[in-house]
Design a protein around this nucleic acid. Structure first.
Length: 488
RNA sequence: CGGGGAAUAGUUCAGAUGGCUAGAACGCUGCGUUUGGGACGCAGAGGUCGCAGGUUCAAGUCCUGUUUCCCCGACCA
């Protein structure tokens, strides 16, 4: 079987993606600015991700909260860099009421109902949260303050793509406030590490993590760190960020506390987040030509049982199936029997493969006679007969094995897709061909970064390591190695 | 905002040079036969051909305007 991988192009999107999402039709004859509907099955995947991530976030001592969708324009303009970075992609609420049109056939914006101050639909929540934080933080006893929120946000991007860049998306954003820079820097790295291990252990994705270059960092941050995964087409996908905000926001939002020594000080802040883009990363990394492949931990259905019967043996097969499923369900909750009578087994096999269910169990007359069942694992599409007495143990083992082998595969792909190059010609050649990550030295100048981007569309994804070499573009001595790739 | 496409059934599309009473596949509904890898037969529902003008005996097809979508850039999680 070939495996060209899944790219978020319309063709792919209109086929098996449709089990998960569809385009939102927000206006007649069009879809407005790349909004998507997440269907029940897709949302169930998101809920699995949320549950796992929430556990890890809370274990860092972070509490969940919720802040408003609307941000007063004045809040937004308090931090100069921040507004610069986001101004061009904000949805703005200017009115609060509609009225009937004169012909009585529709509605229009009521010009009388103009807002005194416009409201921005949050593109991120730093400003509205930190305005509140300024009242929550008054003493060293209030610190560290660690808040997370699950929310939707809107960024009016010029171009959208399903999952990877939708106008509205769901995410988790953590915001913390600390007494010292050492402490906040540790938080930044802890969050980054949490994302990296989450990607490995839950999503079965190996990634590069590290500091971003000056031009790639978050608007208003001192430093930004990113989590970068490699997609099957050789492009890089950043799906998590962690920012060291320094005192930039605490100073502009007047977050102050009285320290033990009696002095009033500005605290140090961090923010970090991952979005539904992560689902895109999972889909694009693991899927094959048969459809989605889900790591068992985030699969809404881990095991699907398909009874295969004719009219004359239906009762016998169903009884056997229910008995087996009952045993499995005791250990593996996400087990589903597909007993729809109007569909052929072949149709069902295909349907659950498209949906990425890790294990399929087929039970028919032939199995019952041998007191066994047929089990098929989605990742390698291997069919195997197993005896009924060991079924639960075997399924548990296979689920773990799928999870682990997906990660192994991801690690291999990352390793194979990472290149070191001697010359700039080689650098460009790789990016024209199979693409992937390239580790090379860069002098740090904007000219070189821009030049590289112009030639090959590649940008620095994150810092790799200290060392010594020559800038791949200009040849000057350089102390820093960076990871380059063409990003989504 | 630049450069390319495109808009016809729920979806994907076909309908050179005008003749259409607008088609196919998949999907949908009903009945029957099926069911170990996307079942089959028969019957059916479904369209002011993006919108507005114009040319013509005749426009899905030609002309003008307009709107929207997609792809490639610039911007970005």
């Amino acid at each position: 079987m070939t495996n060209k991988g899944i790219t978020p192009r319309e063709k792919d999107y209109s086929q098996w993606y449709l089990d998960i999402i569809e385009r939102a039709e927000l206006a007649e004859n069009s879809s407005v600015r790349g909004c998507m509907v997440i269907k029940p099955y897709g949302f169930a995947i998101w809920e699995k991700i949320q549950a796992e991530l929430n556990r890890r976030i809370k274990s860092m001592g972070v509490s969940n909260a919720y802040f408003p969708l609307f941000i007063p324009k004045s809040f937004f303009s308090k931090e100069a860099q921040h507004i610069k970075g986001f101004a061009k992609e904000c949805a703005v609420v200017t009115h609060y009421r509609l009225k009937e049109t004169e012909d009585g056939k529709g509605v229009e914006v009521d010009p009388e109902a103009k807002l005194e101050e416009e409201l921005i639909v949050r593109p991120t929540s730093e400003t509205i949260m930190y305005d509140t934080f300024s009242r929550w933080v008054t003493s060293w006893r209030d610190l560290p303050l660690k808040i997370n929120q699950w929310a939707n946000i809107v960024r009016w991007e010029k171009r959208t793509r399903p999952f990877l860049r939708t106008t509205e998306f769901l995410w988790q954003e953590g915001h913390t406030v600390h007494m010292s820079h050492e402490e906040s820097q540790k938080q930044v790295l802890d969050a980054l590490e949490m994302y990296k291990s989450f990607a490995r252990e839950v999503l079965a994705l190996d990634t590069y993590t590290g500091k971003k270059s000056e031009s790639e960092k978050f608007a208003g941050a001192l430093d930004t760190y990113g989590v970068e995964a490699l997609m099957q087409d050789g492009k890089a996908l950043q799906f998590g960020t962690s920012h060291d905000l320094g005192q930039n926001f605490s100073k502009s939002f007047e977050i102050k506390y009285a320290d033990k020594d009696g002095e009033v000080k500005y605290p140090w802040q961090t923010s970090w987040g991952v979005s539904t883009r992560m689902m895109g990363a999972v889909i694009m990394s693991h899927s094959d030509d048969l459809g989605l492949v889900l790591p068992p931990i985030i699969a809404p259905i881990k095991v699907v049982v398909i009874p295969i019967f004719k009219d004359e043996n239906k009762d016998e097969v169903m009884k056997f199936t229910q008995n087996i499923t009952g045993q499995i369900t005791k250990k593996i909750e996400d087990t589903h029997i597909d007993d729809r009578e109007y569909l052929s087994p072949g149709f069902k096999f295909n349907e659950w493969e498209k949906k990425g269910v890790p294990i399929r169990i087929e039970i028919g007359k032939r199995d019952i006679e041998k007191d066994s069942v047929t089990i098929v694992r989605r990742d390698i599409n291997e069919k195997k007969e197993i005896k009924v007495d060991d079924i639960v143990g075997e399924i548990e083992r296979v689920l773990i094995d799928i999870q682990e082998s997906l990660l192994r595969r991801s690690t291999e792909i990352l390793k194979k897709g990472t290149h070191t190059v001697e010359s700039y010609d080689e650098f460009k050649k790789i990016l024209l061909g199979d693409k992937g990550f390239i580790k090379s030295y860069w002098c740090g100048s904007k000219e070189c970064e821009d030049g590289i981007k112009y030639d090959s569309k590649a940008t620095t994804r994150c810092f790799s390591k200290e060392g010594s070499g020559k800038c791949i573009y200009c040849g000057k001595e350089s102390k820093k190695e960076w990871v380059f790739a063409i990003p989504y």
